[in-house]
Nucleic acid binder design. Structure first.
Length: 267
RNA sequence: CUCGUCGCAGGC
């Protein structure tokens, strides 16, 4: 079984769900991990509907879902294009009774993605042993729902409780500063990043490029962009948008035409 | 052997 599971999840990770499904169907025996690997595969490949239908088959077969199953299903819900309310209620009631930090964090994230921020915060408050991922998820929830003030307030609480933030925390904070047009605060966060040697990855640099542009400091955006060596689609878009905001359409077009020289295709 | 958190733009 273990070898079949390993093989199946290798195909799932490679995005070949056709083969993964065939392996699952042809297995001499299945265990919980087999179900979990198949569901996780569909969830990770954006085929949420398939993940749900395998999940129902799993329940019908008498297998008991564990926390890993719930995490994959919650992830499928979070990335689904459309969700009916009865599905959400069913999954969330299962997830609420799981009493696990990771399941609660995934549930919090689902509520946030569907705009039910109040419920997300309730889940967050009830998690006794919050870890870094939990804090990051809630701060991101506020940032993504355009509630920058609450995001920053929660970061203060996180600090007061002695948690060390990472680059993911910083991306949400910088995003909040962009939304508020708060240059001073943005510069403070940038200084905090340097002082605490937080890793500057593409995500964080892109957030900084966007923040400086939206807060009126285009030169800093330019500088960060030129120092960024592995630019991806989002970082190019951020820089093009930065120039556009400042009325520099000609420069934006120039940057746009150098994208393909860098091997990135515009969207 | 399977699992939770992050950026730009666009669409609506």
């Amino acid at each position: 079984v273990v070898s079949w599971n390993t093989l199946m999840s290798a195909y799932a990770k490679a995005g070949d769900m056709g083969v993964a499904q065939e392996l699952f169907d042809g297995m001499p025996e299945r265990n919980l991990v087999s179900w979990n690997a198949l569901i996780a595969g569909y969830a990770q490949n954006g085929q949420s509907e398939k993940a749900f239908s395998i999940f129902s088959q799993m329940l019908a077969s008498g297998a008991r879902p564990d926390n890993t199953t719930l995490l994959s299903i919650l992830s499928a819900c979070t990335h689904a294009h459309s969700l009916d309310d009865s599905m959400v209620e069913q999954i969330t009631s299962l997830a609420r009774s799981a009493n696990s930090v990771s399941v609660s964090t995934a549930l919090l994230n689902l509520y946030a993605k569907i705009g039910r921020i109040k419920e997300a915060k309730e889940i967050f408050d009830r998690i006794p042993e919050k870890d870094l991922v939990t804090w990051n998820a809630m701060i991101a929830a506020y940032s993504q729902n355009r509630r920058p003030v609450e995001a920053i307030e929660l970061f203060r609480v996180m600090q007061a409780m002695g948690f060390k933030p990472d680059s993911i925390t910083m991306v949400s904070l910088i995003g909040s500063c962009s939304q508020m047009g708060a240059l001073g605060l943005g510069e403070w966060v940038h200084a905090y990043i340097r002082k605490n040697s937080i890793e500057l990855d593409v995500y964080l640099i892109t957030a900084l490029i966007d923040m400086y542009a939206k807060c009126g400091n285009l030169d800093r955006s330019h500088l960060l962009f030129s120092e960024l060596h592995w630019k991806d689609l989002a970082s190019w878009n951020a820089m093009i948008n930065a120039l556009a905001i400042h009325g520099k359409g000609d420069e934006a077009l120039k940057i746009f035409s150098s994208m393909d020289l860098d091997g990135v295709l515009p969207n």
